[in-house]
Amino acid sequence: MKNFNFLDIYVLKTKSFHSMEYAKNTFGGLLVLGFCLLQTISLSAQCSVAFTQCPGSVSIMDCDHSGDEAIQWPLVIANTTGFCTGYTLTQTLGPTSGSLVPLGTYSIGYTAQVQDLFSGLTSTATCNFSVSVIADPTPPSFVLCPPNITVNGVLVNGACTGNAFWSSPISTDNCPNQSTLTSSHGCGTPFTSGPTTVTYTSTDASNNTATCTFTVTVLCNSGTSNQGDSRVYITLQPNPTSATFTVTLPQPARPGMRLRITDLAGRMLQELETAPGTEQQTVQAGALPNGLYFLQVLENDKVIAMEKFVKQ
Rank of each mutant, 00 (worst) to 15 (best):
A112L: 03
V32H: 01
T278F: 01
T244L: 00
S222Y: 06
P169Y: 12
V283D: 00
K311C: 02
L219A: 11
L288A: 03
N300L: 02
A253F: 05
C175Q: 05
T282M: 06
N157G: 07
K15A: 10
N3C: 11
V32C: 10
I134S: 05
K302V: 08
L298T: 09
M257H: 03
V247I: 13
P146A: 02
S97D: 03
S225L: 10
Q237S: 13
S183E: 11
Q91A: 10
E69K: 15
F17W: 10
Y87Q: 06
Q39S: 14
S130K: 06
T124I: 13
P139T: 10
F118L: 15
N5E: 13
T246G: 02
Q281G: 03
S119D: 02
I261S: 07
Q270N: 02
M1A: 08
N221F: 05
V58L: 09
V11R: 05
F245I: 04
E279R: 15
Q284P: 01
T172R: 07
L121C: 02
Y293T: 06
L236R: 04
T248E: 12
T111C: 03
A70C: 03
I170C: 13
E69W: 01
Y10N: 06
S193W: 05
I108G: 08
L249H: 03
N239D: 09
R231F: 05
C36L: 15
S44A: 15
T26L: 08
